[in-house]
Amino acid sequence: MPLLKKAVSRSSVRPADQSALDNCLNALANVVLGKEPQIKMALCCLLARGHLLIEDLPGMGKTTLSHALGKALGLEHQRIQFTSDLLPSDVLGASIFDKQTASFKFVHGPIFTQLLLADEINRTTPKTQSALLEAMEERQVTVDGETRALPVPFFVIATQNPQSQSGTYALPESQLDRFLMRIELGYPDSSAERKMLRGGDGRSLMEHLNRCIELDSLFALQDQVSQVSVSDALLDYLQRLIDYSRTAADFAYGLSPRGSLALLQAARAWALLERRNHVIPEDLQAVLPAVAAHRLAPSGGVYTSGQSLVAQMLESVHVVQ
């Protein structure tokens, strides 16, 4: 259709940025095998300027994925292994007395980086968790009355074990809300697993992973995300979804306005990854599980997970009305 072609051609993503994005996806898929959808979702999250939470059992490749993302995007990255005795100053940094200058000197904590890998975030105490989570929202750190801005871009990729595992401090709903997306990796399929077993050491693959995208390309793409157009019909659908989560009996509480903004932003990023300059319902549906599942809880007396609540939303709400 000529009209549609015209609509697509209006997309103003530079071809160079687009190919860099594709390179990124391919390179990551070579390192983290059989996880293309999750890789794409993670990139989508970063393009939407959101923080990412990866939740799964130990050994599923959470850390590998987050490392690979850091390397492929060419961002300066730091990793913190969260443990139960970690203190907020271990994350944020602290003022230390310097004998030579006879003054206090602020030693930057690992949080002052472009990409922070927060491993097993739910193994640390709520006190340390909240130190990190405040920085995530404000994108600045205040220590000793002095506010220090965090670098730009600033991403947090956190991993956590499922709450049922012992030795975990569950993140409260208010803090889960700070993560734009939560994804699960799941077991690889048999062919990917075979390839992994044959391919030998993942770490060597990681070492060969090069930077795929320049920083200004990343910024340009992030700017493009907010340029993706959203029609009234799509907003109607989005609002129907939100409304359903707020009124249906099985939901303990609905999606917050922050949740609905996150949903729209993620859908825009997804549309960009799909090389479209407008959002269609499929974009919304693609990001909904990752964006909404960790923000929802079933009401009392109903045994379901956030995932099945999202499935219920998708099945119950009309796309075209």
């Binding site: 259709m1 549609l4 609509a7 029609s231 959002v279 269609i280 319902p281």
Partner: peptide, 19 residues
Amino acid sequence: AISNQYQAIVYAGNSHPHA
């Protein structure tokens, strides 16, 4: 053809009467 046309009108903002 129909589906693309419809999506172009509704989601891509191509609400021209001609469309």
